[in-house]
């Protein structure tokens, strides 16, 4: 057992010589048992990072350890649901579940997988190719949950589900995390419903980690200040973004010590924090203590 689910050090992956690398010097540590939102704009490198952690891609350079070992060696303990939810189109729902049982002998939770499928009114005899996008998602998540993995890597898991199905499946995921201490990493380009479910955040853009750490720690490290001062007055802090409002100024800052009482200070929401960092790509990255890659990482 290890207390670290994923640890990346200077992870880089280039799909071709002429294209900009999808990941470019990505470093972070995710402790086991966390529910992590992996967010960032389209093309940020989220899917690449998940595929690397699932052991389906090899990094161009840098190191990555999953559950204390190399990603390929960790595969039996990891469940990965890719964005396009690959399933065998010719199999029926029941046959797909049986495949899951055969491929995961010893750890397969037939009852849980059956419950996830039954929740969605899937006909056991229906062929995968006849299912809607949302139904395929449900079946893919049933396979992933049935595997009883220590680490769930879910690439845009909720994108084509209706709100009720989304809420139910998120509830099931959270119940798994509560009961078994499962580590969950979920990617999305919108924060939306992930906000309440996640306690950890990785904001990736331009192939790098821009923000990494516990949600509360990241929020508390910042402040939204409003006042009639100038940006220069905030120089002791890191100004992520500032805007003129009327005669005054509103800024999202990374605080360094107390803020001058002349400013009105409020705590930003997670969404405000993310948007400010996405609008200000040059703002320095923040990876909170304990979530940086520190130890030697397995090759």
């Amino acid at each position: 057992m290890t207390d670290t689910a994923i640890e990346a050090a200077d992870l880089t992956l280039a799909y071709g010589r002429r294209r900009a690398p999808a990941l470019n010097g990505c470093s972070f540590r995710l402790a086991a048992g966390r529910v992590c939102a992996l967010v960032g704009p389209n093309g940020a490198g989220k899917s690449t990072l998940l595929a690397l952690a699932a052991g389906l891609l090899r990094p161009t350079s840098g190191r990555l350890a999953v559950l204390g070992t190399a990603p390929a060696a960790a595969r039996p303990r990891v469940a990965y649901v890719a964005q396009d939810k690959p399933l065998h189109p010719g199999l029926s729902v029941a046959e797909t579940l049986r495949l899951g049982a055969e491929l995961n002998r010893g750890s397969w939770d037939a009852e849980l997988a059956a419950r996830v499928v039954a929740d969605g009114d899937l006909d056991a005899g229906a062929r995968v190719c006849s299912l809607s996008g949302g139904q395929r998602t449900r079946l893919a998540l049933a396979l992933a949950l049935g595997k009883r993995a220590e680490l769930l890597l879910l690439d845009e898991p909720m994108a084509d589900l209706d709100p009720l199905a989304r809420h139910r499946l998120m509830g099931t995921l959270m119940a798994e995390a509560a009961e078994h201490g499962t580590t969950v990493v979920m990617s999305s380009h919108i924060l939306g419903e992930l906000a309440d479910a996640c306690d950890h955040l990785l904001l990736v853009s331009g192939g790098r980690v821009r923000l990494g750490g516990g949600v509360d720690d990241l929020v508390h490290a910042h402040a939204l200040v409003t006042g009639t001062g100038r940006v220069a007055d905030l120089a002791r802090h890191t100004v992520v973004e500032s805007r003129a409002t009327g005669r005054g100024l509103t800024a999202l800052i990374r605080t360094d010590g107390p803020v001058d009482p002349a400013w009105d200070v409020a705590e930003p929401s997670l969404e405000e924090l993310l948007l400010a960092h996405l609008r200000a790509p040059d703002a320095p990255a923040l990876i909170t203590p304990g979530t940086t890659a520190t130890r030697a990482v397995a090759a």
Binding site: V35, G171, T172, M174, A177, A178, E193, D196, A197
Partner: peptide, 17 residues
Amino acid sequence: PTAREVVEATAINPNTV
């Protein structure tokens, strides 16, 4: 209710409960 019961119904993070 247990943390599991609360998060299953509300889809929030277990640590919040």
